[in-house]
């Protein structure tokens, strides 16, 4: 699967409280959550994000609360993929479970700039910066996680096991 998008860039330790503040967590409707995605970090985010946005961030993206509302709000806002130097582990699991593409590459996270155009081949984890011509190789997913991704999220896999 090929993803193309324009980059919005954030720094280190973007926590799930700023991705989606707790005051909105009485809702679990992705579209409602998307309206407030990142608003405490960047009030203009909801206006800037499009169906062709790729987020790039530094270390420990998604740290803090386990709220799955965080990747849900990012996905529903239109973001096609998140590239980070590293992810907090609960966010990492949540993103895979709900089908938000994430890629870990320290080099890509450092070198890609706000506004760059990037192209990602999900199967291979190759990230190409179309603006500069650079390419980066993201960490490969272990086979078990690839299976979750291929099934379109964890619950489809659970459904299969329950009915067999």
């Amino acid at each position: 699967m090929l993803i193309r998008g324009k980059v919005i860039k954030f720094g280190d330790n973007v926590d799930t409280d700023v991705i989606i503040p707790a005051r909105y967590l009485t809702s679990s409707d992705p579209m409602e959550l998307a309206r407030h995605c990142m608003e405490d970090l960047d009030p203009t985010f909801a206006k800037r994000v499009t169906k062709e946005t790729v987020l790039v961030a530094g270390r420990n993206f998604g740290c803090g609360s386990s709220r799955e509302h965080a990747p849900l709000s990012i996905k529903a806002s239109g973001v096609q993929a998140v590239i980070a130097e590293s992810f907090a582990r609960i966010f990492y699991r949540n993103a895979i479970n709900i089908g938000l593409p994430i890629l870990e590459s320290a080099e890509a996270a450092r070198r890609i700039k706000e506004g760059d155009e990037v192209e990602i081949t999900l199967e291979t984890g190759i990230i190409r910066n179309c603006t500069t011509g650079e390419t980066f190789q993201a960490q490969a997913f272990p086979p078990f996680l690839q299976e979750i991704i291929a099934q379109g999220g964890l619950m489809n896999l659970v459904k299969k096991r329950v009915s067999s």
Binding site: E68, I90, R93, N94, N97, G153, L154, M155, V158
Partner: peptide
């Protein structure tokens, strides 16, 4: 973990 992991 997240909600989906716990549902599973």
């Amino acid at each position: 973990m997240g909600s989906t992991d716990i549902a599973a």
